[in-house]
């Protein structure tokens, strides 16, 4: 257990990129007061591969937490544990404890369907359904039975699209296929689709990596607005993005959570050598 929150000094890393697994302790402030989600000693295995090693952290209310790190560090794997998307991978095993509002989401009594309604997800590549824009947004509310009438459904679709900042662009062509939109619009459509089921937490797995800078900027603004109503965990490759949108940042390295803390501290004054190497562009 590494529940000592504060590590006083920067650690040296004599083995270069290697992490001393035996004695590794997360640097920074993994835990906060009054968290929405708590993760304790999470291990993830793909078959024999140990992809996430003993990660513990909290996710707070109405905050944006970003996960950064070099490719293959396990940040996407970790975020997918938070709404059990990893269940779809046969060889994937998750160990440890992940709680949402005090309930273990990996408990046998938990049904993944309402969990995923509560913890929505936006993916790296925009993946609208090959159906109309309206159907894309309406699908979630419809299967969960959130709307009693057609009018109610229309309203949910409109508010979701408004929240995603897409309404003005598509209000006249709701019956056109979602796949015909531009990349950035598609990603906002996917966000609208996630919002439509009124989740409490939205997980975003590199939502801007397939978009151009203008579309990226729009999504970043959107994330900032959404923060007031939702808790957002975002995985990103772009450190600028992390620093722009998030309040807290976690740095992953080869399956280890190396350092976590307020974003400005991580980017201005990292405590761990690996974090510093990464954010100064020495590798990654």
């Amino acid at each position: 257990m590494n529940n000592e929150a504060n590590q006083p000094a920067k650690r040296s890393n004599p083995g270069g990129l290697r992490v001393d697994r035996e004695n590794r302790e997360t640097v920074g402030e993994p835990f906060i007061e009054d968290p929405r989600m708590t993760c304790r000693n999470v291990d993830v295995f793909y078959g024999d591969k140990h992809a996430i090693i003993n990660v513990s952290l909290d996710i707070g209310k109405n905050e944006v937490i970003s996960m950064i790190g070099p490719s293959g560090c396990g940040k996407s794997t970790f975020i997918r544990c938070l709404n059990r998307m990893n269940d779809t991978i046969d060889t994937c095993r998750v160990r440890g404890q992940i709680k949402l509002d005090g309930r273990d989401i990996y408990d046998e009594s938990i049904d993944v369907v309402p969990l995923r309604a509560q913890v929505g997800m936006v993916f790296q590549k925009p993946n609208p359904f090959p159906k109309s824009i309206y159907q894309n947004v309406a699908y979630g509310p419809r299967i969960h039975g959130l709307a009693q009438s057609k009018e109610e459904l229309d309203e949910i679709v409109e508010t979701s699209l408004r929240k995603a900042g897409l309404w003005d662009e598509v209000k006249d062509r709701l019956d056109q296929p979602g796949t015909a939109l531009s990349g950035g619009q598609q990603q906002r459509l996917c966000i609208a689709r996630a919002i439509a089921v009124s989740p409490e937490i939205i997980l975003m797995d590199e939502p801007c990596s397939a978009l151009d800078p203008i579309a990226t900027a729009r999504i970043e603004n959107l994330i900032d607005e959404l923060r007031h109503n939702y808790t957002i965990a975002i995985v990103t490759h772009s450190m600028q993005q992390a620093s722009r949108v998030s309040q807290r940042t976690a740095y992953f390295h080869l399956g280890d959570l190396i350092e976590i803390g307020p974003t400005e501290i991580i980017f201005t004054n990292p405590k761990h050598q690996l974090t510093e190497d990464y954010i100064t562009g020495r590798f990654g």
């Binding site: 998307m85 995923r116 993946n127 699908y139 996917c190 689709r193 089921v197």
Partner: peptide, 22 residues
């Protein structure tokens, strides 16, 4: 593509709904 499956599962469709709707 798996992205369609993930999209459906990601908003809380059951496996059956994922298969038969998408």
């Amino acid at each position: 593509p798996p992205s369609i499956r993930e999209a459906a599962l990601g908003i809380g469709a059951s496996k059956m709904q994922m298969v038969y709707h998408h």
